[in-house]
């Protein structure tokens, strides 16, 4: 049908072909301008991270293009060894991996129950769980901190793992339940007839068939935790600086160095390395997670 429609359009606009071309040019200009606005800030800092401190203080990053021989790795070696960024990187990994694994498992159990088991109050309970999605984390800090003080895990990795699990669950349950609910019913029914227990069905059928949703969730939760400043600041923060993740190390560098851009730049790019790697290799799943999670809910 659209093939028939095209010539009709052409005929109508035939006289103003130049106008169409002009519009197309305007589109390119706006798109490229926006791309430049989005890229320049990052490029500026990236270049500064490779410049010697004296240069960064005395001239703008764009002058680098006229003297690229000045490039140095000094800033990176300094922050990794001296400014706690190396330790911060390891800590960020120690925090992010379990804080991703635990909520994904726990949410998968719950999502499976919500999707394929029947029990009274199932829909209401699910709405309540999703409703918790918008409780601000800030509302929870004081009582949880008191609780942690009593059981003595403040400043430990465990404190942030469990907190991130609690905070991440409403979204995780929601995303996985929606995906698992769409899986074909016959598969689970025939498995049950063949005598498979729910545990077997879960690990052999539900999980393998839900890989796209799980991948999106893993990326989402991992990036959220890796990039988190607030939760770590509250539950680890000053209580145990040895366990501080990268975001805290960098935030305190901003305070200590103020204008020491060369170090800040290097530290920031070290912290961005992992998210950028995830972004470029798994972008498809990342986008799907965002679109799937938000358009539906």
């Amino acid at each position: 049908m659209s093939e028939l429609a095209v010539p009709a359009v052409r005929r109508k606009e035939g006289g103003s072909a130049w106008r169409g071309r002009l519009e197309h040019l305007a589109t390119h200009v706006v798109v490229i301008l926006l791309m430049a606005i989005w890229l320049i800030p990052t490029i500026g800092l990236l270049i500064s991270s490779f410049r010697p401190s004296a240069d960064v203080q005395s001239s703008g990053w764009w002058t680098f293009f006229f003297q690229p021989a000045q490039a140095t790795l000094e800033n990176y070696t300094y922050v990794l060894a001296q400014a706690g960024i190396g330790t911060g990187f390891i800590n960020s990994l120690f925090i992010s991996i379990p804080a991703t694994v635990i909520p994904v498992f726990v949410a998968a159990f719950a999502a499976y129950a919500f999707a394929w088991m029947s029990f009274p109050g199932r829909n209401i309970l699910f709405v309540v769980v999703v409703g918790l999605l918008v409780v601000p984390l800030q509302t929870t800090f004081i009582p949880i901190l008191r609780l942690y003080g009593q059981i003595g895990i403040e400043g430990q990795f465990l404190a942030v793992w469990l907190a991130h699990t609690g905070y991440g669950l409403p979204f995780a349950v929601y995303l996985l339940r929606n995906f698992m609910g769409e899986l074909p019913r016959e598969v689970f029914e025939s498995a049950a007839i063949d005598g498979a227990s729910p545990v077997t069905s879960f690990f052999r059928l539900a999980i393998p068939m839900s890989v796209p949703a799980i991948a999106a969730l893993v990326i989402f939760q991992f990036l959220f935790v890796w990039n988190d400043l607030l939760v770590s600041l509250i539950y680890i923060g000053a209580a145990n600086p040895e366990n501080d993740p990268l975001t805290i190390s960098i935030a305190s560098l901003v305070g200590n160095f103020g204008q020491g851009w060369w170090y800040l730049a290097a530290a920031s790019f070290i912290s961005m390395a992992v998210p950028l790697l995830v972004f470029f290799t798994l972008q498809r799943y990342f986008v799907r997670g965002i679109v799937g999670g938000s358009v539906k809910g």
Partner: peptide
């Protein structure tokens, strides 16, 4: 994909 902390430094 990057942290708000890194974005803050960039800006």
């Amino acid at each position: 994909a990057i942290s708000a902390t890194a974005a803050s430094v960039i800006w």
